[in-house]
Simulated scan of single mutants.
Amino acid sequence: MPAKSQAQQMAAGAALAAKRGEKKASELEGAAKSMYDSMSEEELEAMASAQQKGKPEHDSNA
């Protein structure tokens, strides 16, 4: 599932870094913390790796 906005993509990237041990999970906040708790590394990678071009900064439908 690709990210719908740049903010969602950045949160997924932060959660992915924590899953991989590159960042402390205790440093996560908000959506990144929720994603860390509820999504697998594979799901986070799919969300974080999509292109940002053409995505809004924030999804108005969220």
Rank of each mutant, 00 (worst) to 15 (best):
M1K: 13
M1W: 11
M1I: 04
P2H: 07
P2A: 13
P2L: 11
A3G: 14
A3Y: 09
K4Y: 15
K4H: 13
K4V: 12
A7K: 03
A7N: 03
Q8M: 15
Q9F: 02
M10Q: 10
M10C: 00
A11S: 13
A11T: 01
A12V: 11
G13W: 01
G13F: 01
G13C: 05
A14S: 10
L16Q: 11
A17W: 06
A18P: 03
A18I: 00
K19H: 15
K19Q: 14
K19W: 05
R20K: 15
G21M: 08
E22G: 02
K23P: 04
K24D: 11
A25W: 06
S26Y: 05
S26A: 14
E27P: 02
L28F: 03
L28Q: 03
E29R: 13
E29W: 02
E29M: 10
G30W: 08
G30R: 01
A31G: 00
K33Y: 09
D37R: 03
S40P: 01
E42H: 04
E42L: 08
E43V: 07
E43I: 04
L44H: 03
E45P: 04
M47V: 09
M47A: 15
M47C: 13
S49C: 10
A50P: 00
Q51H: 09
Q52C: 01
K53S: 09
K53H: 02
K53A: 12
G54A: 03
P56M: 01
P56I: 04
E57P: 00
E57C: 00
H58W: 12
D59W: 12
D59Q: 10
S60G: 06
S60H: 14
